[in-house]
Computed example of a mutant assay.
Amino acid sequence: MSREETVTSRRALLAGVGAVGAVTVLAACGTDTEAGTGSGTGQDPDPTEDPGGDSGGGGEVIAKVSDVPVGGGAIFAASEMVVTQPTEGQFHGFRAVCTHQGCPIASVDSGTINCSCHGSKFALDSGEPRNGPATRPLTAREVTVKGDAIVLA
């Protein structure tokens, strides 16, 4: 093998190794929360918390029932969630990220879930857009009530 062929082979090898490394780094940076399949927190729920006295399963405790006003909602940034209570005792959970361009949800007031980036507003009960530019609903996340706690199902 000539010196020129050896240098070319080394360059090809290093380029291949660099490409594999870049793909590995990019894959590690991705999350499954975009599809609504993860909690987005990267943390396990506290195994010592059992808000409903039922140790037969359940998910991450998001909030207390008293934290979510009737006819409104609250944002829980640590869990990347917005929880609403359109009518008393009826709770809905959504991913707190606008479906327009991925901005975080900023507030829940005046009967809608609001994104401050571009003015999108979403329905409390369904997450459907009420005012654009968003055209897709917020990603629903199932929540249940256990005792006085709202739990990600």
Rank of each mutant, 00 (worst) to 15 (best):
R3F: 08
E4Y: 00
E4D: 09
E5R: 14
E5G: 00
V7K: 04
V7P: 00
S9G: 10
R11V: 03
L13N: 00
L13M: 05
L13A: 06
L14H: 06
A19R: 00
V20T: 07
V20E: 00
A22I: 10
A22K: 01
T24A: 15
V25R: 02
L26E: 03
C29I: 12
G30T: 13
T31D: 09
T31P: 02
A35E: 06
G36R: 09
G36C: 07
T37K: 14
G38R: 07
D46S: 09
E49W: 09
E49A: 14
E49I: 13
G53E: 07
S55N: 10
G58D: 03
A63C: 14
A63H: 04
V68C: 07
G72Q: 04
F76T: 01
V83A: 06
T84M: 05
T87I: 12
E88S: 15
H92I: 00
A96E: 02
H100I: 02
C103N: 06
P104F: 05
P104E: 05
D109K: 15
C117M: 03
C117Y: 01
C117K: 01
H118Y: 09
G119F: 06
S120F: 08
L124W: 04
D125I: 11
G127Q: 07
N131R: 15
A134P: 00
R141E: 04
V151L: 05
